[in-house]
Write a protein that binds this DNA or RNA. Structure first.
Lengths: 208, 208
DNA sequence: TGACAATACTAATAAGATTAGTTAAAATAC
DNA sequence: GTATTTTAACTAATCTTATTAGTATTGTCA
């Protein structure tokens, strides 16, 4: 009967810590309740369901990460902004593997636009508009970056690449590839495919 | 008591179909047993546990995909081989979302090297060695490609990018970015960073 | 102080994985 | 061809976990 002073934040932090320690799929209401010093049914005073908790954890993760990204980008622009954003995301995923799992796995059907994607959008769109890259292509670029960064973080977590060659170097190189891609888009746009580095495969592309 | 003629393959196919229809997390032994026309406990004559079944499904998916990739690459080489491999993987993920979930989510701690990564490795290593790209860098390239392709497939599945701009075009553009990246590596190797497109961020890189 | 809301609890339900023990079918041995 | 052994199905039972119902206690506020 003694009252723990629980609020949403404390619960999400405990849940996140558990997810990081045990992995997402082992995050249970039992474990969470034990960690909070209450009995499982009491959790329902704070949370709608386990599934909803996972969704909330996802949102919480994106929000936290979004803030970290914002902080890093103060006074930085251009390619360097993208580099830093990518690094922050990667580091966050390394530090919070369980929460990142939630962020990557759970569909955000709840809509309401997840803030981190939004913040990343901003960066990418701003960078693209500072160059001669159309908005449609900026969308492509955004999708490509998110896929790469989130995919890399997940693979690094799950499969774990072989350890002999530094994983971080691979990540950085990939980021450089993508940044170079943006430059290529820009060049292609300015001077109509001046060099043939870009070769559209099928026939449905319209780079530039 | 009538005997179904079940073997591992039939069970994995049923499990895969269920995963694709219901999503991975709703794949239960109950549902699987019902689909196979037996009672849940009978499954234990064929499967060690639900968790093991998921692992097997992952391996099964990778094997199937590996075969598809191999088939596609007969008589094809160079950039085009990479393009096709990426497309096959993407298509497979679209056709088999549930199984692909398993492939991406479940750690292959069982070791024994998952065949698809192996096959993809082969392609990438072969392509790289046909150029002047070192083996260490080929490893980077492989990781980058896997991250991008798997990440994209997962994002396309989960978050689902906004529908107004064709998702497939984004994917293809990303592939071109990465292929261009390989070319850059090659150039950098031949002529020591002749153009400044590659800018190592921190200081730990050794491109070329 | 006394009502009301919030939050903890115990007890109970339900679903799902898993085990134990049993039996029928198939395969193999004699 | 019959006996034996293995395989694969079953029923019954257990355990874990999420979840609901109903109760009591704490804290707030009039």
């Amino acid at each position: 009967m003694p009252r723990m002073n629980l609020d949403k934040r404390k619960i999400l932090e405990a849940a996140g810590a558990l997810a990081n320690e045990l992995s997402m799929k082992k995050l249970s209401l039992n474990a969470l309740a034990a960690r909070l010093g209450i009995k499982p049914p009491s959790l329902y005073n704070h949370v709608e369901s386990l599934d909803r908790l996972r969704g909330d954890l996802m949102a919480y993760g994106w929000e936290t990460l979004g803030n970290e990204v914002s902080d890093t980008l103060i006074g930085v622009s251009g390619d360097e902004a993208i580099r830093r954003a990518c690094h922050v995301i990667y580091d966050y995923a390394s530090r919070n593997p369980g929460v990142f799992e939630a962020m990557a796995y759970y569909n955000s059907e709840d809509g309401e636009g997840n803030s981190p994607a939004d913040r990343l959008s901003d960066i990418v769109y701003r960078l693209c508009s500072a160059r001669n890259v159309s908005e449609a292509q900026a969308t492509h670029v955004l999708r490509i970056f998110r896929s790469y960064v989130e995919g890399f973080a997940l693979l690094a977590r799950h499969r774990s690449f072989s350890r002999d060659i530094p994983v971080r170097e691979s990540f950085d190189l990939g980021v450089e590839f993508l940044i170079a891609g943006i430059h290529q888009l820009e060049n292609a746009h300015c001077s109509q495919l001046k060099n043939g580095v870009e070769q559209p495969p099928e026939g449905s592309e319209n780079h530039a």
